[in-house]
Design a protein around this nucleic acid. Structure first.
Lengths: 285, 285
DNA sequence: ATTATACGTAAAAAAACTACTTAATAATTG
DNA sequence: CAATTATTAAGTAGTTTTTTTACGTATAAT
């Protein structure tokens, strides 16, 4: 898998290490940040081992040598530290909670960037390209995401609509046919109503795309599912950021569709953009 | 300023660098990842400068020396913010456009994190706390943002609504009074209709909060304006990401309000969360 | 013309690595 | 079961690479 955290890898391997290697591991784990800044000699001395032992240690963990190891260690420190200990707490002022929330969102996006299945994205783009009609469904916060998606996809000259009303969703799903794509957005993927809607749509031969958590009932009911597993918020002050990840994935999909349509399609997009010009005050730049 | 990303720092400093320094900067920016893995000699050669020049370059950017610089560079690469001189182009496949779009979004978020005015955020939180009623207004893509905001803020036990219909907005603005807060979201801040609505609301003694571009007519009409200046997309394939930035800022504001309300308010939020439980399939974990 | 700044050369210092040796442990056989 | 032999682990010393420093030259600015 993509860049596993080096620190975790080391502490996992701890029991399988031999004497001097575990000494080195101990020192590194006790203060990883210091390790990234010390020379091989310093580290060897602190661990009470020889320099080549440290070097061998590095190579065991798939590094080219000591400097390369330090680099990898430093990298895993950044992503690690930002996850831990960056929760919002009641004492925080604007200066702390503002960057914390933004950083947490950034982190989630970075996670998705590294873990999303490109082949799945491609499959979804395929389905969207072939669609005769697209429905975007979501409830609550995902309703707003569906709304945004509608606003993006209508540009493709396709019948597109979005619905956040359970009854409407159910009725549309039951009248769907082959060629219809139901794009269903749900953070948990466990809302009964929405899973049922997915099932109804599928039974009618429509394509169901699920943007949701892996291993969720919705993911199982989907023809193609895009997994977004944003770490659960243990922190009550931290806002839910799966919405944002969903939006960005829809951006990715829209781009995929645009690219597939080819350069002949660009003038159409430009026309839509221009249509807004007269509604605006001229820019002073 | 908040721990600015080293890569951004370098590209910001680019115009102030002298000949050989800018050569070094060019090489590093063109492929930062490669830079972290090369020796000072390799880098110097590639930049066409001497080794001490590279060393001086490092020190200029507050590093102890070359190795330390490489470390810091590596760290800033992970923190998510990759250097995005990388536009989407027609030849891109999923594997390229997916990370490009996500990276660009991350980049914009990092920019806002580093440039947003904390005192303004505080002022807006003040206004929201004092509000007797909040209206979220937006058109087009910002309509979806307003929708999301409504979904977030209704939890505060306040009359909250969102509107993306110009006529509705106009009527509500004209009936607004002191104690009403009109939260107006607009990427450009130049849409005539929405600027007029802001003016009407203000003339009636309501508070107008603008989430929009600086130096825009809407910003001028607002009681308090939060500036979001996302760099213009020269690239036609790159989606507009100000929406996402707006959403995250609304997350920040909601958190600000929650914190201001104090811990007594948490049970209320928990109750809302619990109310959804029965609508879901049990989690298998 | 003089001073300051920018850049490079060359040599010294530091750091990292390699090859080789010794020690410790495990396995095998008399 | 002890002794010998493999086998693995760790260390020493020396080599190579890398980085830094000190100094000198060139170029630009005053």
């Amino acid at each position: 898998m993509h860049s596993q955290n080096l620190i975790n890898v080391i502490s996992d391997a701890l029991p399988n290490l031999n004497k001097s290697e575990s000494k080195v591991a101990e020192v590194i784990l006790s203060d990883p940040d210091a390790a990234t800044q010390s020379s091989i000699a310093t580290l060897a001395k602190r661990a009470g081992v020889s320099e080549p032992s440290v070097n061998r240690f590095c190579k065991r963990f798939n590094a080219v040598g000591f400097p390369d190891f330090k680099l990898k260690l430093a990298k895993s420190l950044v992503s690690g530290i930002r996850f831990v200990n960056r929760n919002v707490n009641p004492e925080d002022g604007v200066t702390s909670y503002t960057p914390k929330i933004i950083d947490s969102t950034i982190n989630n996006l970075a996670l998705v960037r590294d873990h999303i299945s490109h082949s799945r994205v491609n499959q979804v783009v395929d389905k969207l390209i072939q669609a005769k009609r697209i429905y975007f469904f979501g409830l609550g916060a995902s309703g707003a995401v569906a709304r945004d998606a509608e606003n993006k996809f209508f540009r493709f000259n396709l019948p597109v609509s979005c619905h956040d009303d359970v009854l409407m969703q159910r009725m549309l799903a039951s009248t769907g046919t082959t060629g219809d794509v139901f794009f269903i957005i749900s953070h948990t993927g466990r809302t009964k109503e929405i899973v049922e809607v997915a099932e109804i749509a599928r039974n009618n031969g429509s394509t169901v795309i699920g943007l949701t958590a892996s291993n969720s009932p919705l993911a199982q009911q989907s023809s193609v599912a895009l997994y977004v597993d944003v770490p659960e918020n243990t922190d009550e002050y931290m806002p839910m950021s799966s919405r944002i990840v969903h939006l960005v994935i829809l951006d990715v999909l829209a781009t995929g569709v645009t690219l597939r349509r080819g350069p002949d399609f660009l003038p159409h997009l430009a026309k839509i953009k221009d249509s807004l010009k007269s509604t605006r005050y001229a820019s002073d730049s």
